[in-house]
Amino acid sequence: MTALAEPTHEAETPPRAASPPRRTRPARRWPARIPLHLTLAVICAIWLVPLLGLLVSSFRPPYAISTTGWWAAFLTPGDFTLDNYVTVLTRNHLGRAFVNSLLITVPAVSLMTTFGAVAAFVFARMRFTGRHFTFSVVLALLVVPMQLALAPVLRLYNVTHLAGTFTGVWLVHCGFALPFAIYLLRGFMAGLPAELFEAAEMDGASPVQLFVRIALPLSRPALASFAIFQFLWVWNDLLVALIFLGGRPDVAPLTVAVSNLVNANTGQGWQLLTAAAFVSMACPLLIFLTLQRHFVRGLLAGAVK
Rank of each mutant, 00 (worst) to 15 (best):
M1A: 06
A5G: 04
E6H: 05
P7M: 09
T8I: 10
H9S: 15
A11K: 12
A11Q: 14
E12R: 14
P14N: 13
R16I: 10
S19P: 04
R22K: 09
R22H: 04
R23V: 05
R28L: 10
W30V: 10
P35F: 10
L36Y: 06
L36E: 04
A41D: 04
V42T: 15
I43S: 12
I46D: 03
W47L: 12
V49W: 15
P50W: 07
L52G: 13
P61T: 08
Y63K: 05
A64I: 06
S66M: 12
G69V: 01
W71R: 03
L75H: 07
T76A: 02
T76H: 07
P77M: 06
G78T: 06
D79H: 08
Y85E: 08
Y85N: 04
V88D: 04
T90A: 10
G95W: 09
R96E: 15
A97M: 10
F98G: 09
V99C: 02
N100H: 09
T105V: 02
A108Q: 00
M112A: 02
M112E: 05
M112S: 03
T114P: 01
T114I: 14
V118T: 07
A119I: 11
A119W: 12
F121C: 10
R125K: 13
T134M: 15
T134K: 01
T134R: 08
V137E: 00
A140R: 06
L141S: 12
M146E: 11
Q147P: 00
L148P: 03
P152V: 07
Y157D: 00
T160D: 13
H161A: 07
T165P: 06
L171Q: 10
V172H: 13
G175P: 04
L178M: 15
F180D: 01
F180A: 05
L184C: 03
L185H: 05
G187N: 15
A190G: 12
G191H: 10
P193E: 08
A199S: 15
M202Q: 11
M202E: 13
G204P: 01
Q209C: 03
F211T: 08
V212Y: 14
L216K: 09
P221D: 06
L223N: 05
F229G: 02
L232W: 00
L239M: 14
V240S: 08
G246I: 05
G246E: 08
R248V: 09
R248M: 12
P249E: 13
P253H: 14
P253Y: 12
N260H: 08
N263F: 00
A264E: 12
G267K: 03
G269V: 03
W270C: 00
Q271I: 01
L273C: 03
L273T: 04
A275Q: 01
A277T: 14
F278A: 04
C283L: 13
P284V: 01
L286A: 15
T290P: 09
T290N: 03
Q292A: 09
F295G: 03
G298D: 06
G298Q: 06
A301C: 05
G302V: 06
